[in-house]
Design a protein around this nucleic acid. Structure first.
Lengths: 215, 215, 215, 215
DNA sequence: GATGAATGAGTGTTCATTCAT
DNA sequence: GATGAATGAACACTCATTCAT
């Protein structure tokens, strides 16, 4: 099973696609991610997928619908399955110390990012141009994930492991550091040589130093 | 003088453009920034600029050359004029305390970002697809700015104001927090209500807490 | 039983269609008549008929064959059943006076036109483009109906009720007036308010005045 | 100068087209008239006109706009120039006897029909599908021409040359006979052998007999 | 007999680019 | 320097038709 098959399985878990439809999605993900949505033609997708151009439009009314069919469920899946099954495990497991919680969070997000990299790239590219996508993300992410995150923060604040700053701001700063690191690592400069363990640890320690109460 | 005129002045300082050429650049910046490079047609640009379609190609051999002519000098200017004139002032002025240096840096970057927002959006969009652009950025930014920044860090490390961590990593973490904040503030969620002063201060304190030696 | 069912019955009297086939014909008549043959797609027909696209082609090798299967028997039926059963009754019944003959003819044609309006519209549209159709019409109509009509004219000429003009020309003039009236009434301006009885009478009188011998 | 050039001149009198644009219109008229609007592709038009397909769309935003640009001014021209210059001459010249008026009218319409046959065919084909066209025709024709015609009829009624029937009905009957004849002659059966002079005269006499007061 | 996924040629239209004026 | 008509390849999308199930 190819890497792309895996992505498709992750994003469209239970749906049963025909073989051709899978090929189309695979090809679309690869091309959108490499050349961008607007610069990828449906004929290229058809060619790469090994299907007739008409076949694409039997399954998706428009090119945009194809994009959305790939990109919208990803969001749900980033908050849903992987999140419910993985991320929530992280959030719910009673890590006694915030350091362990953060480390688990980083590793979890890193795993997701690595697995779904091409589709995530597409999402990032299209956010500015697809209003529905942006709204869907804000809805799903901001309201669900951010909320859970904020709760965790309150939890550790009560335990005296985090400074007394509005949880929203703490959340923003933590996410900035975690996502900023992962973004630099996997999207901006994937080709640099990174000492992952070390850099993760440094990010982690900076967050902890920065947001722990003075002892 | 319009805002766009200002951008053009900033990016293409000494070059003397005809009025038509200015209009073309203005229109291109606006459209590329709104709809993306690939989704903007040269005829749209011509129409918005109030010139004939052919006129664009008199000044720029191809559509891509027009893009590059806008986007490449920006990079130089982010490192050059504004940088030499503004940013370096920041870097060179002997701020006694790192806190003042960081605060000045944030404010300086914020100012640049606000001024050049449309062009910066274009750059961010096109980085993944324009190899030369990406290389130019890494060259200019990574090597020049990052170097200067690393020197400053060493300077404050010697003064005992920063923890003993490889300056590269410190730089990465500082930039992650500063740029992550500005990016969230001005590009991702420009429409949210931000208490700029407060949020800036929190970002700043987090960096300082996170990267200062334990007292 | 719907109006369409009636049309189908009229045109394809003895043939026994499956339910699906009937639905296809019904849908085709409606769509061809509304949007024209060339502008109606087989998928539209399938959708409106509630069958799969393939089903159409199980019954008709091509889209054109579907058109012809609707349009050709109409011609035969205009000359055949309705004609043999209705029109000929008119022609054969020994109306003593031409006025009665003409009045009966108009009413008979009016009834046919009203019943089969959608299919007749299709025929009129396609005559210029379907050579076989045109030929079929000329064959059936010109040779059979026109012949019968001419005989009737001779009959009334002998009775001294029609002027001495070549029967062909008289036929043409009568048909022009009758069909011209019906065409204006039901196809060109069906939405105007017509006083049918009055206008019929006027048409009739004009023909009679125009073609009766001077008294 | 070709026959088509003449049509173009007649319909688009003063407009100055480029050579290519003329070729496009010419090709479009010929093809629309032969195969119907819906069955003619823009690529065919381009090929026949000897221009690139893009050239068509430089002059006409859509295929439909091309159709309308041909078909709408025809209506105006049937009522306008040819009408104002020719038809009105007929209507205004004080023919003492209605017979002369009708004969002149038939000959005038015949001339127009012969000249503009291809475009008139297109109009007739598209009336059922182009609402604007139908409305334009009713507006222009029904209101302007029909009005003039009705006035003439009143004039001859007063002179005692026409029976006492509502002028509208007389107009309808006259037009039915004139147009019915011309339509049969030039559109339905242009290939039959017609003795034009004779058939015209018969049509004329029928109208006169039919609509003259009993002597 | 009926389905509907699949096809690939063809559709109207847009595109970046050229070039004579 | 500026124009805008012209290009033809490419575009997203539709079509009538086929065929395995």
């Amino acid at each position: 099973m190819s890497e792309n098959d895996f992505i498709i399985e992750q994003i469209f878990d239970n749906e049963n696609f025909t073989e051709k439809q899978k090929k189309i999605i695979e090809a679309a993900i690869e091309l959108f991610s490499e050349k961008g949505y607007a610069s990828t033609s449906t004929s290229e997708i058809a060619k790469k997928a090994g299907v007739a151009e008409g076949t694409i439009f039997r399954h998706y009314k428009t090119k945009k619908e194809l994009l959305m069919s790939i990109v919208m469920p990803l969001i749900t899946k980033l908050v849903g399955p992987i999140v419910v099954n993985d991320f929530n495990k992280v959030l719910d497991r009673p890590y006694d110390h915030i350091e362990d919680f953060l480390r688990a969070t980083i590793e979890n997000r890193r795993a997701v990012l690595k697995k779904l990299l091409p589709v995530i790239k597409i999402v990032l590219q299209e956010i500015p141009f697809q209003v529905e996508l942006k709204e869907h993300i804000i809805e799903q992410f901001a309201e669900k994930i951010f909320g859970l995150f904020v709760n965790k923060i309150k939890f550790y604040q009560e335990k005296g492991q985090l400074i007394d700053m509005p949880p929203n701001s703490i959340a923003r700063l933590m996410l900035t550091n975690i996502l900023g690191y992962l973004f630099s690592r996997y999207i901006l400069f994937p080709n640099f040589e990174w000492d992952d363990e070390l850099e993760t640890e440094r990010t982690l320690q900076t967050i902890l130093h920065g947001l722990s109460p003075k002892e």
